[in-house]
Design a protein around this nucleic acid. Structure first.
Lengths: 189, 189
DNA sequence: AAGGTGATTTCAGCTTGTGCAATCACCCTA
DNA sequence: TAGGGTGATTGCACAAGCTGAAATCACCTT
């Protein structure tokens, strides 16, 4: 018999998502999350630097995958196309199969300002990483920043559509449409 | 002799900016800010809902001005051009004359994650407001979201350039260049 | 069998943020 | 000029987030 039940981190994440979903982020205390996971508050803070971070473990893995795909992308692609291709691959590999959980998590985040701000922070870090990956391909930094930001914008548009109830298309399929819409909106001068 | 020294809010803002600048956001307590402003911690929280918000009073006024300019803009302008024009007007009216303070405040924000997240949250609210103003002009919501996001992206690029030491151009003059660069980067495929 | 490892726990303490009641100079009105 | 209302400020008590230090103890190595 092991000294401790296994998978403490996963238990904390599951307990937190459930509780945030049931009663909201603010009305849930860390002690409560820990109790449901059969752990203590101190153990929660051993695994997560703050109460919000328990919902964001995936974002780091996502970022690494995306950066890897950009580095591996055909070197002839325009910056924006390279990033969008990376988003498409990662959408297929990591997001499509977990649609239900992703949508639930997104609803929890959308319901609370602190969590929205943390999400925006994660997106900003991702944008920086994407820009850095583009710079490593030979892009100048200013262009890399704009391409990364534009790609994030298209990604967000596609993601919002993907999480709409009744939407049947895959995220991968929605991304090219979003880029087309962005190109039309920004226009050619 | 008045019962209290006047301008409590301004004194708190000045004390906070100074202390954050001197010793960092995290190592500054609210009690310390209040003390320097010759007030109490409780009074600080009467004026600001949390410690971060003391740096963000301007963002609400900025947002109102921008939305107003979009509503007043020539109805024939493309969505992106309408937003960029609003940014140019507001840059002249509210930002250019306060360059020194704006740059100092930006440096403080850039040095702390919590403040960056709050700033991103304010930007997101601004983006929503801009999109709403465009929708009110007859834009469909999806296009409004993309135009607002693209304008914010160009604005950020111009702003970053504007805050660089040695930069002599005005923010208003930098904005059109940023839009041109964005158009080139998003490109025609 | 002895000793080190490392996840977990306990505890004490600081900081943020809030509700509530009290203060008291200023202003308005009678 | 007296009296009462206003409203910015304050003190107090307390919940909740978060941290450093030290203790525990099943498991693993040797």
């Amino acid at each position: 018999m092991p000294r401790w039940k296994p998978d403490a981190v996963e238990r904390l994440q599951a307990a937190a998502l459930d509780l945030f979903d049931e009663q909201g982020f603010e009305r849930t205390t860390v002690a409560e999350i820990a109790q449901r996971a059969e752990l203590t508050q101190r153990t929660f803070f051993n695994h997560f630097p703050d109460k919000r971070e328990v919902l964001f473990e995936m974002s780091s893995k996502l970022r690494q995958e995306i950066v890897g795909e950009i580095e591996a992308a055909d070197h002839d692609l325009e910056p924006l196309d390279a990033v969008m291709h990376a988003f498409e691959v990662v959408a297929d590999k990591l997001l499509e199969s977990r649609r239900a959980v992703v949508v639930r998590r997104y609803a929890v985040i959308a319901a609370n300002r602190e969590l929205q701000e943390r999400e925006l922070g994660k997106n900003a870090v991702l944008t920086e990483s994407v820009a850095a990956a583009l710079t490593a391909r030979g892009c100048d930094p200013a262009t890399a920043f704009l391409a990364a930001g534009a790609a994030m914008l298209a990604q967000q548009a596609a993601f919002q559509q993907w999480t709409r109830p009744g939407e049947t298309r895959t995220l991968r399929d929605l991304l090219p449409d979003a880029v087309r819409a962005l190109r039309t909106t920004v226009g050619v001068s």
